[in-house]
Design a protein around this nucleic acid. Structure first.
Length: 873
RNA sequence: GCCGCCAUGGCGGAAUUGGUAGACGCAUCGGACUUAAAAUCCGAAGAGAGCGAUCUCGUGUGGGUUCGAGUCCCACUGGCGGUACCA
C-alpha cells in the first residue's frame, strides 16, 4: 500500500535536506555587526505566533500559518532581503501546570519534552527558521527580561499631558517641588497609586476550580476560557497593569495598521471608547453630588429619574428610612447573583426606589433616585441619568415601574404618528431636540455640543470619554509562571535589585493550588522570606512572555539587554517610507483581544520610555482560516475528525502537506480538510519529479533523457514567464492557491514537450522552491550535476527569477465578439490591428449576422485585447 | 440587538480597474497501456433542448445603474465568527 504511494522518494530526500539546512545553518540571519552581515540588504521580518507546546503536538492548523510565512521568508531571501524568520515557545501556562499536577511530574520536565517534540515536528516540515534565535519564555535568560520589563512598568507612570509613560522618578521630583510639606508616607502612597503596575484591592474574577484569578479577557460567558469552569467575583489584592491609560492610543494608532478590518473592529469594540459628558446632579436636602456619564447630554431634559448601581457608595446616604429594608434586601439579592445569572435575567428589569431625589441641573426638577442591577458599578461612574424616551433599557425600566417617559428628541422626517401616539415608544436615534428650552430645534450633534458648553460654563459637568476597557489583572495564583520581582515589607512593596534578576521559581515538590486564595509559592517558605521582607507569591499570567518575544528574536542571545539597540533599530526600525516593526505577522484570530492588545500595550510603554523605535509592533497582520475536519465540522477528538500532520507527512511527505494546505483555498478562509486533495497535490509533485526523472528496468531513478540543454520555444517561454509573473505577484499577495494552480499549468505544459528545455525546468523548480523546498532542491541538484549550464548552488541561495515582458506578448490575439453583451463568436486579430479593422472583422463574422440582421448597429465597443461588443436594435 | 465576514458546478475553489463565468484540483465517465488490476498517460464534462452546427438558461432572492454585472448601488434571505444591560 505505502509502496504504491511512494511515486517519488520523499522519505529519503526530505530528511537529507533538513539535515543539510541544519548543519550548514542555511537560514541563519546575521545581525548588524555579525560576520556576513550585508548593510546594503533591506530587512524583512516575518513572524509566526509562537505555539504553546501542548502535550498533543502539532495539529494541522499550525502548519497552515507556518507554511505561509515560510513561503514568504524563502521568497524574500531569494529576492535579496535579509530575512528574520524565527520560532520559539510560549511555554508557561495553565495546561502544563495542570498536567504536572495530574502526573506529579515537574512542569519544567513536561515542558521540555513537549518543546522537543514540537521542534522535531516543525523541522520535519522543512521550515526555514533561524534556529539560533529560538526562544523559550520559561528559560531563566528570558524570564530575566520579562521581569525587567515588568519593573519598567512598575517604575513608570502615565503622564496625562504628554499622553505617554514616563519614569516615576520624574513624578516624584515634581511632587516634592509642588507639595514640600507632604510626608514621605503620603508621597509614597500617591506614587504607588500612579504606577503602571500597581496593586489594587478590587472585585476580580476568581475561578475556584483553577484556583486562580483570571483577566476579563480570559472569562467567556461567565466561565473560564481554559476548562470552562465557573468564575465568581470576589475582592482580592491583585497586581494590575494600567492599560486603560492607553485606551486612546490603542484605538487611534490602530487605524493605519495593515490588519484585517474584523480584528481592528474587535479591538475597537473591546476598548469601547464612547464620547459624551459627565453631569453632576445635586442630591436633594444633602450636600451629596452624583456624577453620571452620558453619551446623550442632549437628552438631559428627558431625564426623569436616576439609577445607581447597588454597590454605589452613596446608596446608604440617599436611602430614606422607610425604603431602607427594601434597598438592603435588593443589595443582598444583587450580590448573590453570579454574572451568569445577571446576564440571563437581562430581559427583566428589577430595581428599588431609594426614597431620595436629585435635582436635574437643566430644569431644577426633582427626579427620583433608584437602584438597579442593570447599572454596573464597573462602567462610567456607576450611576446614570435615565432617559426612558430615548434609551431602550431606561424605557423598559420605566414601563416596569411606571416612571415618566418624556420625549425630548423627535425623529427627523418621521411621519406624524398621531394614530398610535398614546402608545409609549422609545427612540434611541438622532433627531431634533424638543421640549428642551436650551436646545430646542437643534439636531442631535449640535444639541450635544451646546449642552456640554452650557454644563461646563455653569459648573454642572464637562466633556468626558469613557472606555469599556478595564485595567489588566496581571497576577495569578499559580506556580508555573514568572515570579514578580517584588518584595513586601510592612505592607509596602518595592522592586528587587535589577542585578538580582532573574528571580527564579523555587524548586518545589508540591506546587498544587493551596485550596485557598494563597498562591502555591506561599508554601515555599525559605524562598518567600528575605531578611525582614517577604517575596510576592503571585506569578505573572501566560501573556507576559508573549508580550515581547518578537523583540527578543531580534537579539535572542544578548545577555546585557533585552534587545540590543542596533538590532532593534535594524529589525524593528522604520526605514524610509516603511512604517517599521514586524513586516508580516500571521496567526489565529483567537488572539484578537488578548495577546495582540497586550503586546501593543507593552510595546507602547517601551516606546515611550525610549527602548524601541516604533509605536506599533506589528505592521501587517493576517489571520489564517480555521481548517475543519473532512466532514466540514470543527476538528475535535469527540467528533473523531482530527487529522494528525505526522500521519500525512509519513504517507505523502512534508512537501505534500505544505502544498496541500496552501492549495486548499484562500489563506484567511475557513476550509475543510480533504484527503483526496492531499493525494491531488501529491500527484502534482510526482509529476514534477517525473518531469525531471525516469526509471530504468530495475526501477532506479535517473535524470530524464528527454531533458535537453536547448532554448525553449516561444510558446513554452510564454507559459514559463506567465508563471514567473503570476507566482511572484501571488506570493506577495499571499494568494498561494492560485500560484500553485499556475505552476500546475506550467508543469503540464512542460510535460507534454517531447524535448524538455532544462533551463525552463530549473526555473520552474525555483518558483516551486518556497512551497516544496525539499523536492525542488533535490531535483535541482540532480539536474545541476548533469547540466553544467545550470546554477551550481542550491536554490535557497539563488536569486528569484524575473519575467520578461517580451515573452508574454503574442502576435495574434483572440478576441471575443458579443452582440448586445452576449457572446456570439471569437476572432483572431493581429496584435497591432487598429480599432477600425477589428470592428470590421467583428461585424463581418458569420455567426454575428443572424443577430444583427434587420437591426441597426448603434455602437461598437472595442476593449483592447479582450472583446468587441456590438450594440444593435 | 449590534459589529465583522461569507454565499459561484457533485465538491474545494478561479475570474486585473465592471469585459470570454467555472482556471487549477478532487470526484465522475470514456480511451490507451496491462493477462488483469494499481500506477501512469490522453480525452469528456454547469444545466436543459437537439443527430448536429447551434440555441436557451445560469454566480443565494428581488430591483436598479451600464453597451456589458459574480464584480457597482438599493432592499432582502441564509450561514459563519465576535459581542452583548457599556449609559
Amino acid at each position: 500500500m505505502s509502496e504504491r504511494r511512494k511515486q517519488y522518494p520523499f522519505d529519503v530526500i526530505e530528511p537529507k535536506w533538513q539535515a543539510r539546512w541544519d548543519e550548514e545553518k542555511t537560514f541563519g540571519a546575521p545581525n548588524p555587526g555579525d560576520p556576513g552581515f550585508d548593510p546594503g540588504k533591506p530587512k524583512y521580518y516575518v513572524l509566526d505566533m509562537f505555539p504553546y507546546p501542548s502535550g498533543q503536538g502539532l495539529h494541522v492548523g499550525h502548519p497552515e500559518g507556518y507554511t505561509a510565512t515560510d513561503i514568504m521568508a524563502r521568497f524574500k531571501r531569494m529576492k535579496g532581503f535579509n530575512v528574520l524568520h524565527p520560532m520559539g515557545w510560549d511555554a508557561f501556562g495553565l495546561p502544563a501546570e495542570q498536567y504536572a499536577i495530574k502526573t506529579g511530574q515537574h512542569p519544567r520536565v513536561t515542558t521540555e519534552k513537549n518543546v522537543e517534540r514540537f521542534r522535531g515536528q516543525l523541522k520535519r516540515l522543512g521550515f526555514s527558521y533561524d534556529w539560533e534565535r529560538e526562544v523559550n519564555t520559561t528559560d531563566p535568560g528570558y524570564v530575566k527580561w520579562t521581569q525587567w520589563i515588568f519593573l519598567r512598568l512598575y517604575n513608570s507612570y502615565f503622564d496625562e499631558r504628554e499622553k505617554a509613560a514616563r519614569p516615576i522618578r520624574r513624578l516624584e521630583e515634581k511632587r516634592r517641588a509642588e507639595l514640600p510639606e507632604e510626608t514621605a508616607e503620603e508621597r509614597r502612597a500617591f506614587l504607588d497609586s500612579q504606577r503602571l503596575a500597581f496593586v489594587s484591592e478590587a472585585p476580580v474574577n476568581w475561578c475556584p476550580e483553577l484556583g486562580t484569578v483570571l483577566s476579563n479577557e480570559e472569562v467567556v460567558d461567565g466561565k473560564s476560557e481554559v476548562g470552562g469552569f465557573d468564575v465568581e467575583r470576589r475582592p482580592m489584592r491583585q497586581w494590575m497593569l494600567r492599560i486603560t491609560a492607553y485606551g486612546h492610543r490603542l484605538i487611534d494608532e490602530l487605524e493605519p495598521l495593515d490588519w484585517p478590518e474584523g480584528i481592528k473592529a474587535l479591538q475597537r469594540n473591546w476598548i469601547g471608547r464612547s464620547e459624551g459628558a459627565d453631569v453632576t446632579f445635586r442630591v436633594q436636602r444633602t450636600n451629596d453630588r452624583i456624577t453620571v456619564f452620558t453619551t446623550r447630554p442632549d437628552t438631559l431634559f428627558g431625564a426623569t429619574y436616576m439609577v445607581l448601581a447597588p454597590e454605589h457608595p452613596l446608596v446608604a446616604e440617599i436611602t430614606t428610612p422607610d425604603q431602607q429594608r427594601a434597598v438592603d434586601q435588593y443589595k443582598i439579592d444583587a450580590s448573590n447573583k453570579s454574572d451568569m445569572q445577571r446576564t440571563e435575567l437581562a430581559k427583566d428589569k428589577t430595581g428599588v426606589f431609594t426614597g431620595g431625589y436629585a435635582v436635574n441641573p437643566v430644569n431644577g426638577e426633582d427626579v427620583p433616585i433608584w437602584i438597579a442591577d442593570y447599572v454596573l458599578m464597573s462602567y462610567g461612574t456607576g450611576a446614570i441619568m435615565a432617559v426612558p424616551a430615548h434609551d431602550e433599557r431606561d424605557f423598559e425600566f420605566a414601563q416596569e415601574f411606571n416612571l415618566e417617559i418624556r420625549e425630548v428628541v423627535h425623529p427627523k422626517n418621521a411621519p406624524d404618528r398621531d394614530d398610535d401616539d398614546d402608545e409609549p415608544h422609545c427612540f434611541a436615534g438622532k433627531g431634533i431636540a424638543v421640549n428642551s428650552p436650551l436646545i430646542d430645534g437643534l439636531e442631535t450633534d449640535e444639541a450635544k455640543a451646546k449642552m456640554i458648553d452650557w454644563l461646563e460654563s455653569n459648573g454642572f459637568g464637562r466633556r468626558a470619554i469613557n472606555f469599556k476597557l478595564r485595567d489588566w489583572l496581571f497576577s495569578r495564583q499559580r506556580y508555573w509562571g514568572e515570579p514578580f520581582p517584588i518584595l513586601w515589607e510592612k505592607g509596602l512593596h518595592r522592586a528587587i535589585d535589577e542585578n538580582d534578576l532573574p528571580l527564579a521559581l523555587p524548586e518545589m515538590e508540591d506546587f498544587k493550588p493551596t485550596g485557598t486564595t494563597d498562591p502555591p509559592l506561599s508554601k515555599a517558605i525559605d524562598w518567600v522570606r528575605v531578611d525582614g521582607a517577604s517575596r510576592e507569591t503571585n506569578t505573572m499570567p501566560q501573556w507576559a512572555g508573549s508580550c515581547w518575544y518578537y523583540l527578543r528574536y531580534c537579539d535572542a542571545r544578548n545577555s546585557e539587554r533585552f534587545i540590543g539597540e542596533e538590532a532593534e533599530e535594524y529589525w524593528m526600525g522604520a526605514e524610509n517610507e516603511e512604517a517599521g516593526g514586524v513586516d508580516l505577522y500571521i496567526g489565529g484570530t483567537e488572539h484578537a483581544v488578548l495577546h495582540l492588545l497586550y503586546a501593543r500595550f507593552w510595546h507602547k510603554v517601551l516606546f515611550d520610555l525610549g527602548y524601541v523605535s516604533t509605536p506599533e509592533p506589528f505592521q501587517k497582520l493576517v489571520n489564517q482560516g480555521l481548517i475543519q475536519g473532512e466532514d466540514g465540522q470543527k476538528m475535535s477528538k469527540s467528533r473523531g475528525n482530527v487529522v494528525n500532520p505526522d500521519d500525512v507527512v509519513e504517507e505523502y511527505g512534508a512537501d505534500s502537506l505544505r502544498l496541500f494546505e496552501m492549495f486548499m483555498g484562500p489563506l484567511e478562509q475557513t476550509k475543510p480538510w480533504s484527503t483526496k486533495g492531499v493525494e491531488g497535490v501529491f500527484r502534482f509533485l510526482s509529476r514534477v519529479w517525473r518531469l525531471c526523472m525516469e526509471s530504468d528496468q530495475e526501477g532506479n531513478w535517473m535524470v530524464s533523457s528527454v531533458l535537453v540543454d536547448e532554448d525553449a520555444d516561444r510558446k513554452t517561454l510564454k507559459v514559463l514567464h506567465e508563471t514567473i509573473k503570476k507566482v511572484s505577484s501571488d506570493i506577495e499577495g499571499l494568494d498561494f492557491n492560485t500560484a500553485i494552480a499556475q505552476m500546475m499549468v506550467c508543469t503540464n505544459e512542460l510535460t507534454q514537450l517531447e524535448k524538455r528545455p532544462v533551463r525552463a525546468v530549473a526555473t520552474l523548480l525555483q518558483l516551486l522552491n518556497p512551497f516544496a523546498p525539499h523536492l525542488s532542491e533535490e531535483l535541482h541538484e540532480l539536474l545541476a550535476n548533469k547540466f553544467p549550464s545550470l546554477h551550481q548552488t542550491e536554490i535557497a541561495r539563488q536569486t528569484w527569477p524575473e519575467y520578461k515582458d517580451e515573452f508574454l506578448v503574442v502576435d495574434e490575439i483572440e478576441m471575443v465578439v458579443q452582440v448586445n453583451g452576449k457572446l456570439r463568436d471569437r476572432i483572431v486579430v493581429k496584435k497591432e490591428s487598429s480599432k477600425e479593422e477589428i470592428e470590421r472583422t467583428a461585424l463581418a463574422c458569420e455567426k454575428v449576422q443572424p443577430f444583427t440582421e434587420g437591426k441597426t448597429v448603434r455602437k461598437v465597443i472595442v476593449v483592447a485585447g479582450k472583446l468587441v461588443n456590438i450594440v444593435a436594435n
